[in-house]
């Protein structure tokens, strides 16, 4: 697999480690009254789509950036990748 790093271009997936669903970036608000339930969902529940999936990859043997990679889990086609911190700043 090759991952299109937004700053460094196509890099072999062996340079990266995988974390999982990009929804892990949406950490619940700990001050809400239902925080425990929200955290339980956040920690334990994931969608497992056959198709387009946004997921987190860490460029461990590279620039140490976390990327949000959009990948089709059926075809392995990679539709895009951006710096996770840019995504986080947008609040997406």
């Amino acid at each position: 697999m090759l991952i299109p790093h937004p700053l460094l271009g196509l890099r072999d997936a062996q340079e990266f480690t995988y974390l999982g669903d990009a929804s892990l970036m949406a950490r619940p608000d700990p001050d809400q009254p239902d925080a425990e339930a929200a955290f339980a969902d956040y920690v334990f529940l994931r969608d497992n789509p056959a198709g387009v999936h946004r997921e987190l990859w860490f460029h461990e043997q590279g620039d140490r950036s976390w990327l949000v990679v959009t990948r089709n889990t059926v075809t392995h086609e990679i539709l895009g990748a951006e710096l996770a911190t840019d995504v986080a700043r947008r609040g997406a």
């Binding site: 480690t17 974390l19 461990e60 140490r64 976390w66 911190t85 986080a88």
Partner: peptide, 16 residues
Amino acid sequence: GLVYQRMEFARQCLWP
């Protein structure tokens, strides 16, 4: 290595 990775995750993804 893992703690560093998690701290980078927190820095870049949770609290940019």
